[in-house]
């Protein structure tokens, strides 16, 4: 499957990927409206860690054998057998944080949002949620620090 890879050498800590991710996962898909007016506020699934000297965009690897799916107690976290995309169902999620503690990359977060705290993670967004496509963070990256390429597993 195609996955997003973060290249630390080229990450410039601008966090445009975070903004693009929030926009994509908003109701309006308009950056200004999404970030200024929407409730609950849209959550970014990708997160840039580090600072100006050294930074990297931390993002779900969509593992072949995902620990988060293994640990999920409510059946919210699933790996699509066809596309390979690991995604979470907010309606089933109970916010128990098992996925957070099991993810070896720190790529799942629980956010206190409306109506309840649920897990947020990359859904490898394309044009349709849960379906692979050119992810918006990759498009927004100014320096090819995020690349979307075919990989094994």
């Amino acid at each position: 499957m195609k996955r997003i890879y973060a290249i630390e050498a080229w990450c410039v800590d601008c966090k445009r990927c975070e903004v693009a991710c929030k926009t994509f996962h908003s109701k309006s898909r308009n950056t200004v409206k999404a970030l200024k007016a929407e409730f609950p506020p849209p959550q970014n699934r990708i997160r840039v860690e580090g600072g100006r000297q050294l930074s990297i965009a931390v993002n779900c690897r969509h593992c072949a054998a995902p620990k988060c799916v293994e640990g999920c107690v409510s059946g919210a976290m699933t790996k699509d057998p066809v596309t390979g995309v690991v995604s979470t169902n907010p309606e089933k999620c109970v916010g128990c944080r098992t996925c957070v503690s099991m993810c070896p990359f720190g790529c799942v977060r629980i956010e206190e949002t409306f109506p309840k705290a649920v897990a947020f993670k990359c859904d490898l967004c394309g044009d349709v949620l849960g379906q692979p496509g050119e992810p918006s963070c990759v498009t927004a990256c100014p320096n090819n620090a995020l690349i979307y390429i075919e990989s094994e597993g």
């Binding site: 410039v12 601008c14 975070e18 903004v19 970030l35």
Partner: peptide, 13 residues
């Protein structure tokens, strides 16, 4: 100000 979402990209750039 109507367009600024205070994402801080400018500050870090």
């Amino acid at each position: 100000d109507d367009l600024c979402v205070k994402c801080g990209v400018c500050e870090r750039s």
